[in-house]
């Protein structure tokens, strides 16, 4: 890591063909990055900047009127009860995903990597990963069916286990809908992070475990004293990536409940869609977009800070 960092700073083509003093040559050397700069600037940065402009207007596509309303949309944001629900739902998404997809996955990876058979380790990693490869539309629809009272298998399963009295219409009940969606998401995503933790664990030198064993440490003690600290970097990154992802959730909510019942499962992404594209209120939708921007930016800064600090420590 430290090595790459130094390389960036000194990285220059051997012989440095174009001294920066020659403007034409400098311009010509930009050909390598011009396409990327252009397409990323045009389709990623520009619309995101533009979003802030749109968020201070009220637009009506049918009349074509655009009215400047200043911070009115942001004031509405602060008093919109559905935004509060959505913020909480996104937060719950993040917290539960950290619990299952970071800590749960860590333990699962530790268990798998403690197996003796190479083949079985590979098999479990691959099997658990399968749902992550499948589109969230498919898994969302699948769980939508699984949760259905008539054809779903969850109710049948619960009745079979004597838990029939706990059964309910998971997606139709405003107290459980978002959690049913989050549960699907854990099912889909835990294999992905398990795989990443597995790889991180494999990079730990075996001698460390051997030495610990010599000292009489049991497996749990070894995981606690070696595996956990040695995968701390991965854990930190995973937490940040998971939180960022949790605030961009859209697909599964759209497919499974579209935010219902009674907006109880709205997340910021679906509420933005509902406002902008169903209720024809693009200005307000853009303000919701700014909120998403704020949260994901915080995560991004956290990530940068974390990487920097790690580099310094390394």
């Amino acid at each position: 890591m430290a090595q790459s960092a130094t390389r960036i700073r000194t990285g220059r083509a051997p012989g440095a063909p174009h001294p920066i003093g020659q403007p034409l040559a400098a311009l010509w050397s930009m050909r390598w990055v011009a396409v990327a700069l252009g397409i990323v600037g045009w389709f990623v940065y520009y619309p995101i900047l533009n979003n802030f402009l749109v968020s201070t207007t009220q637009q009506d596509i049918f009349t074509g009127e655009v009215t400047q309303v200043g911070l009115e949309n942001y004031r509405r944001l602060a008093s919109d009860p559905v935004v509060a629900t959505a913020m909480w739902n996104n937060t719950a998404y993040a917290l539960l995903s950290i619990l299952f997809q970071v800590f749960g996955a860590f333990w699962l990876a530790a268990i798998i990597e403690g197996l003796q058979s190479d083949r079985w380790r590979a098999i479990w990693r691959a099997v658990y990963f399968i749902p992550s490869a499948i589109s969230t539309t498919v898994t969302g629809l699948l769980f939508y069916f699984i949760y259905q009272p008539q054809i779903g298998i969850l109710d049948g399963l619960m009745t079979g286990m004597g838990l029939g009295h706990l059964s309910r219409v998971w997606l139709g009940d405003s107290t459980t809908a978002i959690y049913a969606i989050i549960a699907m998401s854990q099912w889909q995503g835990f294999g992905y992070s398990t795989l990443l933790f597995s790889v991180a664990i494999q990079k730990i030198p075996q001698e460390l475990f051997d030495a610990a064993r010599m000292d009489g440490a049991g497996p749990l003690r070894q995981i606690w004293a070696i595996t956990l600290p040695m995968t701390r970097e991965m854990t930190g990154m995973m937490i940040i990536v998971t939180v960022t992802g949790a605030f961009q959730v859209f697909n599964e909510v759209m497919v499974m409940t579209a935010g219902g019942p009674n907006n109880s499962s709205q997340v910021l992404g679906t509420w933005l869609f509902e406002q902008g594209f169903n209720q024809n209120d693009m200005g307000y939708a853009a303000a919701i977009g700014s909120l998403v921007f704020g949260v994901t930016m915080l995560c991004g800064v956290a990530q940068l800070w974390y990487t920097r600090r790690r580099r310094v420590e390394a």
């Binding site: 259905q148 309910r168 998971w170 139709g172």
Partner: peptide
């Protein structure tokens, strides 16, 4: 009807019944 459970059922499922 099935009562509150209706919120978890799609209208297509209902026609099918």
């Amino acid at each position: 009807t099935v009562g509150a459970a209706m919120n978890g059922i799609s209208y297509q499922t209902a026609i099918q019944e």
